[in-house]
């Protein structure tokens, strides 16, 4: 009896691993989308209100998706306090503290920091173009993530179930 319960648990665990792996792919899509949307708001703040970066980030921090509100808000506050030498430094420091709950890859964060390098440089047009370029890159990354999700969702589910079954058969 105990053996069957154990085998059942192994099967369920393996299936759950497959489901979780697929869900992580979906979470990344959501995370990329949330950041993209936040940056679109930031672009609006700069384009239409000609807000300074601290102001713009703070305003976005009040309206962006809940998952990245704290990142935008904290970055705006840090910049207002002039705690960092550059926008990139402020973004890096706040991303480490406030984007932990997002499912982002290293390359996603690097893209964000590259935007930080450009922000504050030259005129308003340059800021808008810089954010536009980031949004474009983010969109491409999101599309790739969506394709990956479509391709791998079933694979991960199947692998989880099949792996579970394989172990059950092996141990039975």
């Amino acid at each position: 009896m105990l053996k069957f319960i154990g085998l059942g648990m192994i099967f369920l665990s393996c299936s759950a691993i497959g489901v979780t792996a697929a869900r992580e792919l979906k979470r990344r899509i959501r995370s990329l989308w949330d950041l993209e949307e936040g940056m679109r708001l930031l672009q609006g703040e700069i384009r239409y209100a000609k807000a300074t970066l601290p102001e713009a980030f703070q305003h976005v921090g009040m309206r962006a998706a809940p998952s990245c509100r704290s990142f935008f808000g904290a970055t705006g506050n840090r910049m207002e306090q002039l705690e960092h030498r550059s926008v990139k430094e402020a973004m890096q420091s706040c991303a480490k503290e406030n984007l932990k709950n997002l499912c982002l890859k290293r390359e996603d964060l690097e893209r964000l920091y590259r935007l930080g390098e450009q922000l504050g440089y030259l005129d308003q047009e340059m800021q808008i173009k810089g954010i536009e370029f980031y949004i474009e890159q983010q969109r491409t990354a999101r599309k790739d993530a969506e394709r990956e999700y479509r391709e791998k969702e079933r694979v991960y589910h199947c692998l989880g179930i099949m792996g579970g079954l394989f172990l059950v058969i092996l141990l039975a």
């Binding site: 300074t52 910049m79 002039l82 926008v87 504050g120 308003q124 800021q127």
Partner: peptide
């Protein structure tokens, strides 16, 4: 300029 020279044109 709070890192925002563009806002002070």
């Amino acid at each position: 300029t709070h890192y925002s020279l563009y806002a002070y044109e």
